[in-house]
Write a protein that binds this DNA or RNA. Sequence first.
DNA 1: CTGAAAGCGCTTACAG
DNA 2: CTGAAAGCGCTTACAG
Lengths: 362, 362
Amino acid sequence: MNSSKTPSSSPEASSPESSENGVEGGRRRATINDIARLAGVSKKTVSRVINQSPFVRDETRERIEAVIAEWGYAPDPQARGLAFRRSFLIGMIYDNPNPQYVVNMQLGLLDGMRGSGFELVVHPCNRASPTFLQDVRSFVERQKLFGVVLPPSVSEDERVAKLLNEIGCSYIRIASVELDKPEHMIVGHDRMGAAAAAQHIVGLGHKRIAFISGPESFRSSHERRGGFEDGLAESGLKLTENDIVQGAYTFESGVACGDVLLARTPRPTAIFCGNDEMAAGVLQSARKAGLSVPQDVSVVGFDDFQIAQAVWPPLTTVHTPTREIGKMAAEKLIGVERREPRDMTKTEPSLVVRESSGPVPV
Amino acid sequence: MNSSKTPSSSPEASSPESSENGVEGGRRRATINDIARLAGVSKKTVSRVINQSPFVRDETRERIEAVIAEWGYAPDPQARGLAFRRSFLIGMIYDNPNPQYVVNMQLGLLDGMRGSGFELVVHPCNRASPTFLQDVRSFVERQKLFGVVLPPSVSEDERVAKLLNEIGCSYIRIASVELDKPEHMIVGHDRMGAAAAAQHIVGLGHKRIAFISGPESFRSSHERRGGFEDGLAESGLKLTENDIVQGAYTFESGVACGDVLLARTPRPTAIFCGNDEMAAGVLQSARKAGLSVPQDVSVVGFDDFQIAQAVWPPLTTVHTPTREIGKMAAEKLIGVERREPRDMTKTEPSLVVRESSGPVPV
DNA sequence: CTGAAAGCGCTTACAG
DNA sequence: CTGAAAGCGCTTACAG
């Protein structure tokens, strides 16, 4: 059994390399003791400077900071974490299947953590696993995580939030609705984006409009549908039961739903899809049916991931600022004070008009 | 200046939450001292069990393991790392711009690390930055990384390998050619995949064949080109200077190169592209020129990322087992002994024939 | 095969 | 405003 729960390369077991590791290029890294000695103070005072304590005379602080800078000293996060009983690691726990989303979210979190000394540990998971909660718990507890960021759909799992509260781990939930206290939330405002899509479609003169929804289990499915209906309502339009088809946020489900909708008589002249993947699927379906987009039918997506520009015609879609949202989440988690007030418009979705939408056919 | 190099939420500065953190749900986690006491041995002996030392009597070991299991004890990686002078974190340092690649690589690394107690810290970087090497160095040294995995193109940077050797950090380079000692390499065999693509194209009867290359700075560009030429050579065909156009592995460069190639007289009847992105671009270009794929021109890609199936027609391409390669890299780094011998065919690229390639037009 | 002492590099009370 | 002592949870020599 090599599935032991501890790293297996131990010193006593067998480590051929360990002997040569002592002889590294360059001199030993400075420690807090070195800095204290060099600055002629106790290590506690150096510690105060590191931790930005106000109880240090300016003169002393400057002297210490000079020594720190001269030696390029950086405190050991491991030792600091051991004493703090809390590491300087941020966990991202997620099950979102879209690579573009995942990568943009990671980049955003890293943006928000830059220069802070924190590092990002990634932790994909499976919410359906019987050991899911136990996995999350042991991940958080073993690493003594400073905090975790939860994108959808993990963010929508109340069991996870409850667990995190119980074990006293800071967390930020990213979701399309306010699911928790404000200090734990970054909200995406999917409704606004979907409403903008509705207005765009209505503005083009469409009346026979269909909606392909994401899966029931995602809050964003409901928000995007709700926002779309809000937008239509402004022009006095509304979706009937029949106008809504249930997809699964996948390309294949988009093809299937497209097949259903495009076979109808009368055919819808515009289809709003819960995400780009499904919109790309509808494009595929239209091609099979010999229909032109947007001449015969307009198609609008949501997310503005790369696929939106790679398909033909390029998709009109709702851009979501995933990376910016990630940045905000990280900043909130680690408690960064911002110079400028937050510009809320930067995290709002916005409509991007491309070539997959056009006037209603005559 | 909040750009201090240490986490800013310090106890002395201002931490409103810190007081309530002491009162967490449930009892304190067990430590090595608890286990030692409960098992009636010294902590050193518990340590020996944790580290799989052979110098423990079987009876003693079993008793200790029983206590460990009963209490669900897991050693604190932070304390262990402090004593070891080495953390149990694996870094992935990368600059590959493709989200699908990045996510699959991460998943593969995680596959290889599962159950080992290691965690994955992600570290995107910019090789062109003047502080690049310094950034890598301080990341590795500060976190006392157990080791790092370098996908292309970071893996191709000799300065990074040199640095890592100097500071004594284990590393695995993932590349399309053997750039280093075998213990530091996982090789992708891009040549084989490109040769298979050539054979497929030749088999379809094509003679006027063009190649869109990736950027000079990526080794894979050269390997894919070389492999393609090898494959053609088997049938006595060869590429002239004129048949090769230089792209940049991006969708846009694919469009541009497609525009150039498809405007020629006589037009090539088949185009092999260095990756899927560029192949998707060529599809776009063909559409603009009013050409049908594969009736007028066959297009073949490389990678088999999602885009290959989302475009129309779906791309014939070379599938690369990114995730499997990541798994091997992680296993090699942490020194996992494998039950079965490695199945090399699992890391070889393989041709996937879809609808973007067909017989040469008559 | 097993253990007591010292140490990894920090921070926490507690003094002054 | 500053410091000496003890401790965070492990592992390393060194003994036996």
